[in-house]
Structure formats: structure tokens, C-alpha cells
Amino acid sequence: MAVAVYPRNLAEALRILEIQSPLVLAGGTDLMVKRAGTYPDECPVMYIGNLPELRQISRQGEELRVGAACTFTELLASPLLPDYLRVPLAQIASPAIRNAATIGGNLCNASPAADALPMLYALDAHFILVSAAGECRMPVRDFFLGPGKTMLAAGQLLAEIRIPIREGWRCIYRKVGMRRANSLSKLSFYALSDCAGGRLQDIRIAFGAVAPTVVRSREAEMKILSGLPVEEIILMYNGLIKPIDDARSSSRYRREACIRLLKQYLQS
């Protein structure tokens, strides 16, 4: 039988983390399913879902700060959240899962199909990682190494997600799942554009679930801004997308659907 540990605050959690190396549980919607047979029973479990320091949502200037233990339901209920963040989050799983699942858990689980990820890549979000020794700030693109693999070190917790906010963003999001609810993504497409003054000022494009981590290329985005023909842009992304065949879809479908979505977006 596993030992459960309930720290009262972040400092206590970090001390426990350093000494006992527990399994960290926030919402538990992935972990509870995965646990059986995956982790040794002796490994203690530390619950961080109620740590007050990880449950804040605030705005500091042009930056949205989201505590890692906020659930998706809480995020969706926050008036601070702009629509271009709300749209992808509203399509995650089902109300029951969104009530329990946390954004930090979704990120640290590091599934290539994590639905909160493409928007954070597109927005150049940063993560605040904390340990007993102190805190550091890391860009989202540096945090993820591959499926299930992150830069999170032993003794570290993901505490906060910092997302730059910009007034003019308009988003397009397409999650291609296996059904309308409670479904993992076969692929997802997230694009932001800023057309202030009737002219394309900036563009961001991210693809989920079609490579070990989210596909985003600032270089390609700059080429779009510079007016490179659609065919050449598509070629660039075609080289970046590296989908796999798995139980949920085929690499062929994932690649072609991505390219078709991109083409439709660029032509509109």
C-alpha cells in the first residue's frame, strides 16, 4: 500500500520532494490510470493539488500567470483568460476530467497529444520551475524533450506558467480527435494571427501530436510574414512534421490532415 503525503504549502512540498522523491499527484486523471503496474507500490505519493501557491491566476502587466495546480475548469472560469486560450482548453476531455485535471499535470505528463501544449508553444510561454534551492524560468520549447520526457529535475516542481498576452490575437484551433468528447487528439492545429490595422502583423502556428514535441517554427512564420508562396511554406512544415502510426491514427493521415489544415488556413 502506498503512503500518501499532503504538504500544506509549497515550501513543505519542496522539502518532501528533496528527501523522499515521491510521485507527484495533482489532478490524477492520467496518473491514477497509469499507476497500476507502472510505479512501485513503495513509492510515496505527494498530493500538490491543493497547495495555495500553485492555485493562483493573475495578470502582471502583459503576462498571465497561471498556477500549475489550477484545474482546467478553474482556468475556463477565470475572467483573466483571453479567448485564444479558452478555445483549446474547452475541448479537453470532458467536464468531469476538466474538473480534476490540472494544467501542470497535463504539461508534466508530457504527452505529445497534450492539448494545452500547442497554444503555449505558439505564445512563447515560460515555465517557473521551483526547488528547495530556488526557482528558474524556462521557455516552453526548452522544457519538453520528447514523449513523457521533460527538463524537470529531481527535487523540482512546475509551479507556474507565464503566458504573454496580446490584444490583437485571433486564434484558429482544430482538434482532430476520435470522437466529440473524452478523446485524445490524433492531431491538433493552433494558429494565431494579429491583423491590426488590416495588415498581417504577426502569425504563430503550432501542431500537436504529430512529432515527439509540438511542431512550431519561428523561421517558417517569418517566411509567411515575408510573403513566401503557400506551396513553399507547406514544404517547410512538411519537413518538420514527423507523425507516427499508433493505435489512434496513421502517420499518413496525420501528415496529410496537418498539411490540409495549414493550407486551408494560409489560403483564408
Binding site: V33, S94, M178, R179, R180, A181, N182, S183, L184, A247, R248
Partner: peptide
Amino acid sequence: PVQVSFTDYILPTSLD
């Protein structure tokens, strides 16, 4: 069989 869980073997929900 490849799809051996209800994560991968997809049944319709009321939304479908």
C-alpha cells in the same frame, strides 16, 4: 489487438 483500452478503442458518447 492494437486497441486494448477504452483510450484507444473508441465508443461513441452522447455528444457523438
